[in-house]
Amino acid sequence: MKNTLIHLNSSPYSSLSCKEGLDLALVLATFEQAVDLCLSGAALSILGTNQSPEVEQGKNLHKLLEGLEFYDIENIFIQESHLNSNTEHTWQGTQALNETEWNQMFSNYQQVFRF
């Protein structure tokens, strides 16, 4: 079994990339593969708790986050410098890494896929 990192970097609302990256993570977990997530760039907006997109704006991917632990996806990394100070409206299930840890993280996996 290989350990895999899914790196989400696209906005959940500007393309399907974020959704299809999460789909791959869920399928890997369903097949009992070790998988972690990391978020950067526009994908960080998935962490906002106060979003309610209309149908034409796309699926509310934020809702998937609470379910990740049931798939044994427990590590969702972000960069410390990108921590949102508005903790009231930010999902708190992430682990913040400093710059060195973030850069080192990518070497910890046999496979990294970017979406």
Partner: peptide, 20 residues
């Protein structure tokens, strides 16, 4: 094919290369 086929390919080859 479903994504399960990709998982099987991952586990039966040495390396997977993404083109994006």
């Amino acid at each position: 094919e479903g994504l399960g086929t990709l998982v099987e390919l991952m586990n039966t080859t040495n390396k997977i290369i993404q083109f994006r």
